[in-house]
Every structure is written in C-alpha cells, then in structure tokens.
C-alpha cells in the first residue's frame, strides 16, 4: 500500500530541515519544536563522531571539526541502520570527497582509518580460526593466524603521533597490525615494518616463512641471518600476544 504524495512530501521537508538546517515551513509545526528535533539529531551525530574519533576531534580546530560533521550529515544519506557504524560512513565520505586536501589535513584519512579500525576490530563478528596445533616448525610449517585482525598501511604515523608538524615530517610507509585478543576481546596495536607487513600478508595466504624468505630477493630484499632471526622473533612474540595461534596440523 502506498502513501499519497502529501505525507512523503511532509516527511521529506521535515527531515531535510533536520539534516541541513535549511528553513522550511510545515503547517502545524512550531518552529522551536522543529529546531528541537534538528538539535537533538545534530547532538547525537556529533557525540557519535566524537566518541568514535577522539584523537581526530582533539587535534582539529573545533569549528573545522564541527563543520566536517555538519557537512557530512547534511550531504550524505546515512545508510547504516546501526548507529555504531555511522563513523565508518563518515570516514568513507571523507576519503571519497578528498578531505585530506579540502581541509588541508594530509593525514586525516589515515587518522580516521586508524580510529575506525579499533572500533571495527573490537566489534567484528567472531571468526572461527582454522585448526591448529601448538608445535611445529617455524620455517617450514604454515602458520595459523588469529583471523580477527586488520593490517593497515598509512602515509603518516598516526598510530604514534597526533601533532600536525611532527606527522608532516614523517611522511612515508607505515604499517599497523590490529588484532582482537581472544580472551579479553581487547584490541592490540602493533606498529610493524613494511617487511613484516608483507610477511603477515603471505602467512595469511598459507605461505611458509621459508618460502617467503626465498621469495624476498625478487622484491629487492636482501635476506640475511639477522632478517630471518628478527622475523622469527617477531612471530614468536606475536604467538605470545595471540596473533599467531599455532601451526597447521
């Protein structure tokens, strides 16, 4: 059963005002009460963004930040029926609209990605790991990783620093591993080198450490005893941190 045009038109005008603040007249609606709805919705969206992006919010001038949130909500049709996913839409909108340049914050999308990833990994649906055993050969046995992780790459080290001047000086290739600790559900962050990021990607695809090391020269990487030793030390440590679960049986 469909509505006649009247009610959808009223709803459109009501919600457009709530989203944009553009003046509208609706028969029977007291302007101050309409304002109440707009303010309530604005506060909710603002609070949601500030809870999701505390570092970003704290390191951007307040008026600029509020302008970003206001622009996002006015121009973007939020599709998520779960309010906790609204910050993902904000991040996506910032990337799609090139806000790094628009707002002259070159590390903005990195920072938003970093903060969103913590929420995402903390909340992500449980993923059953592959079968594994606790002992095996570190070089030759495929490893089983905790599947609840994200590997992020950044142009700026937003996982270590939030101050603009310092971030801009350290433009490069930065990698951060986030994984959810199975017992507590807490999210752990590990800053890693480009080499270890590559290793993790290959391990996740079932490649052994030995095969990864053998392939490394094709990437221009000189494999030394020290590199092998450091790689294995990292993996051993990550087993303690419940990112490496064990070995394929």
């Amino acid at each position: 059963m469909s509505s006649l045009p009247d009610t959808p038109q009223l709803q459109h005008r009501f919600t457009q005002h709530c989203r944009t603040g553009i003046r509208t007249t609706l028969p029977g609606v007291a302007p101050d009460r309409l304002t109440h709805y707009r303010q309530a919705i604005r506060h909710m969206v603002k609070d949601t963004m500030e809870s999701a992006y505390p570092i970003t919010c704290a390191n951007i001038p307040a008026r600029k930040w509020e302008g970003m949130v206001r622009t996002f909500f006015a121009r973007h049709a939020c599709t998520s029926y779960q309010v906790w996913k609204l910050p993902l839409e904000f991040y996506t909108y910032a990337v799609e609209n090139n806000w790094d340049d628009v707002y002259d914050i070159p590390y903005l999308s990195d920072l938003l990605a970093f903060e969103w990833a913590e929420i995402e990994v903390f909340n992500m649906e449980d993923i059953a790991p592959a079968a594994f055993v606790s002992t095996g050969h570190w070089l030759e046995t495929p490893l089983v990783l905790n599947p609840e992780y994200r590997l992020l790459s950044f142009k700026y080290p937003v996982h270590r620093e939030a101050r603009r001047a310092r971030l801009l000086k350290e433009k490069g290739a930065w990698f951060v591993l986030l994984h959810r600790e199975p017992g507590t559900g807490n999210v752990k962050f590990t800053g890693i080198s480009p080499w270890l990021a590559f290793v993790i990607e290959q391990l996740a695809a079932g490649i052994t450490v030995k095969d990864i090391l053998e392939y490394a020269p094709q990437l221009g990487i000189t494999v030394t005893e020290e590199l092998e030793k450091d790689t294995l030390a990292f993996l051993t440590d990550m087993q303690q941190q419940h990112f490496v679960f064990g070995f394929q049986p």
Partner: peptide
C-alpha cells in the same frame, strides 16, 4: 527518509494517508 537514516524517532503526520 530519502534513504537516509536520522537516528531519531520522528513524528508521523496524523493523516489518513499516513495511517494507511
């Protein structure tokens, strides 16, 4: 409305077309 969630409970116009 307009395929955009507003995350608040908005009042329906008390009209027959809306009730239907």
């Amino acid at each position: 409305c307009d395929n955009a969630h507003l995350y608040d409970l908005l009042p329906m116009p008390f009209r027959m077309d809306a009730a239907l």
